[in-house]
Design a protein around this nucleic acid. Sequence first.
DNA 1: TGAAATGTTGGGGCG
DNA 2: ACGCCCCAACATTTC
Length: 446
Amino acid sequence: MKAIVWFRRDLRLGDNPAWSAASREFDDLVALFVIDPALWDRASEGRRRVLAGHLQALDDDLGQLGGRLHVATGDPVEVIPKMAAVLGAAVHWNADYTPYSRSRDRAIENVVDATVHHGQVVHPPGSILTGTGGRYRVFTPFHRRWEQRPLTPITPPGPATVGADPGDGVPDVAPPPFDVGEAAAIERLERFDERVDRYLDERDRPDLDSTSKLSIDLKWGAIGPQTIIERIGTHTRGREGFIRQLAWRDFYADLLHDEPESMTRALRPEYRHIRWEDDPAGLDAWKAGRTGYPIVDAGMRQLLAEGWMHNRVRMIVASFLTKDLLIDWRQGERHFRHHLLDVDVASNVGNWQWAAGTGADAAPYFRIFNPISQSKKFDPDGDYIRRWVPELAELSAPLVHEPWTAGPLELAAAGIELGTDYPNPIIDHSFARERALSRYKAGLGR
DNA sequence: TGAAATGTTGGGGCG
DNA sequence: ACGCCCCAACATTTC
């Protein structure tokens, strides 16, 4: 008996429910990945490199079993049923929870012998319910229930043989600038395990190397969240705090699963009438890292350069876009979705709605970050700013957080001419704050 | 997983 | 010695 294991965002062989189940139940497997041109053609260069790197690593791992990763190109809705019919094979995969994936998968489920597993989250959407069977809309009670629910034991794979036809093969693009694949992800986890007890104290510091950097591995499923829990544990506060972040990931997957419309509109109806600014110049300045607020610009430049941004800085730039510039959160969500190599659509949408105050358990609309005090608090020496905004490198803290307050002598000594070498702030924060408060209040009243 | 405005308290300078 | 004011420090309220 034959089965296709359709890999999507679960590019690993360990802690992979679909792979484990199929390899135990069937003798012959085809390990399949489908490159959907609708996604691939729109992907950034960086994302293609990361994906191809993960596919290559998976292909190598399958080689250890005497097989290959079969790469097909086309619309999965056509490719999967066709292959299943030709091979006479059942199909196993791990569920994805975005609206796009779900409608695609539904179309396929109807025409093949499909078995759907859950390998992307710790507890699948719909499994964490309130006492009365409802959905949590506040994170803390969700988390309480989430950590009480027992983990599903990880089942090891069985002895099936794996097909050796590579199909179209892994796309031939340049390798990513960091190690990818399951073994690299496990190694990253091991290294983080040595630092995790500093996590709670240092996780908000973008100038330190204090986070796990596992987000890209998680995005592609080179590692499963349950493996992370089993390795890190919750026996110290730092470990518990880190694992709590995985619960946020589940929270947002659950939320998007339950409210697919929240992809494109405010989850909370009373926030659907905010009048956003039509400000293409402001949006461009934000995207390019030329707002004149160093911490914002540092983050936005890191995003373009690395396809990654420190989480605290994500919150700061999101608050700046939605509150200071009053630009629709969907503009920011789209920009992040395109450039973040670790983008998890549910978390991205959920966190943008959180920042804009429109989402579940969101920051109240009047919680407006002051980009200067955030900068001083979380990048105290300005090292993060200096790394990403090199034109300010000669400016010492605290001036590096607010160069417009530097005197002419200090600017000259640092070799900076404001407005030429580095922009003046494109908006005054205290003005912007008042504007946001009144605009949100007006929108809520409608 | 804020920040600013406003209120309160208490120490110290000073007439 | 005393009252008054200033203001830093902290607490509370408001957005």
